[in-house]
Design a protein around this nucleic acid. Structure first.
Lengths: 238, 238
DNA sequence: CTTGCGTTACGAACGTGTTCGTGTTATACT
DNA sequence: AGTATAACACGAACACGTTCGTAACGCAAG
């Protein structure tokens, strides 16, 4: 692994032996920095510094920061996969899995935003998909709907995490929404009757309640909404 | 157009009359650049250059780039609000509004990501909320559920737009997902039976089909899921 | 008219992601 | 063994967002 062979130190820097940059090494260094100093310190330059090299060197193994963050996420997803014993209904189990997924993304909000644009493809993410598919099948959901439902569920959970991302980063959280709250409370009731009537309801309810409700909505909706029964557009793999 | 005629230190005395930086002026300049050169050119430095000043000057009127982008979005939402004649069922109308919303965000993907974390509060966004609330009420949805449903619908549409954001920016689109596709097609069928069986179904269907299906799922699910968080029994709804 | 003061404009600087060109290294081939 | 060649490491640079300190301004009071 660590090629401790000391190469001729005359032309090279007088550095004795550098562990020869690796993609996994970069990801490991990133995870170490993540745990030690937080996500905001996980920058290309900081990682390069930890590996005693320049930022440009990393781009041989990592396409960009998004790519790196996706790898980090897959490592974090190990905490989501933990095979819980089958407790509760399948709906409850879906909620539990998604809640664990949500909490992981809550802790690292930047990654949540990244996940929306770049899907992970690591082993832990695949296990997460598998786990959800199994639960939906257990709930009697047809195959074709289940695949889209998995996508929808994960998209929702990711979006919720991304939505709350700024709040964890900076203490000033309510400040941003307050603009919307203020706009709604001082709204012209003649132009926007519905908003004036039940505008405050928009912000009602706790986070977990809304999340659980939304999952139920997605599951019930999927169970009662068949995919376009028009004709099957079989994807020809050739 | 480099400002090369007034390098002497008597900087401002002889300036003719600069229009005296304004928040609205900054937003207008940003919109002008947006239409002329695209979103990727709408940077603080470019706006400052257009207003013949330095980047730091803008921060008196604009908190940060996110703040600026939110303002831009509200201006763009004017295209979504256009009061269409009541054609089709209320579900179809919801789909139409959300599709218009989606298309606006599709054109400016960076803004979609921003919208997830910073809610707009401008007049056009309020009108959008009002319009959706009215449609849901017209569909017979109870008030309490309708407010949460509006949030859910907009969150979904925004997330979809953000998800496809990278594809429009750079031509290399399929490359990112291809990692997931490759991982699924070459999957170990013993460890992930469900994924191996219907993995390709995950990517089936066209974008609009999935979008329309998801809206139906959200609407039907909301109509059958009361907010009262009473524990729902595991009863297959037949 | 002078003086003082709060507001605003802005040069300079720091840290960021990312790319290019170049020098270095290690492997493969003749 | 000697050499060709591809992969790699990395310094330097560019554009970006954001902040700080300071200089210029407008305006009211003296």
């Amino acid at each position: 692994m660590t090629n401790k062979d000391v190469p001729p130190p005359r032309s090279r820097r007088e550095r004795p032996a550098k562990p020869a940059l690796t993609r996994q090494g970069i990801i490991d260094a990133a995870l170490a920095i993540l745990r030690a100093e937080g996500l905001h310190k996980v920058t290309m330059r900081r990682i390069a510094q930890a590996l005693d090299t320049g930022p440009a060197s990393l781009y041989v193994y990592v396409r960009n920061t998004a790519d790196l963050h996706v790898q980090i996420l897959d490592a974090l997803l190990a905490a989501v996969i933990e095979p819980r014993a089958s407790e509760g209904t399948w709906r409850d189990q879906v909620k539990q899995v998604l809640t664990r997924y949500l909490f992981v993304l809550f802790d690292y909000p930047e990654i949540a935003r990244m996940t929306l644009t770049m899907h992970p493809s690591g082993p832990n993410y695949l296990s997460l998909l598998e786990q959800l598919l199994a639960l939906l099948k257990q709930g009697g959901m047809p195959d074709r709907e289940a695949t889209w439902a998995v996508d929808l569920l994960l998209l929702y959970a990711t979006a919720v995490a991304a939505e709350h991302s700024t709040r964890k980063e900076r203490g000033a959280a309510a400040e941003e929404d307050s603009a919307l709250v203020a706009a709604i409370t001082t709204i012209d009731a003649s132009r926007h009757p519905h908003l004036a009537h039940l505008g405050d309801e928009l912000f009602s309810g706790s986070g977990p309640d809304r999340f659980a409700w939304a999952i139920d909505v997605l599951l019930s909706g999927t169970l009662s909404t068949p995919r376009a029964a028009t004709e099957q557009e079989e994807v020809c793999p050739h």
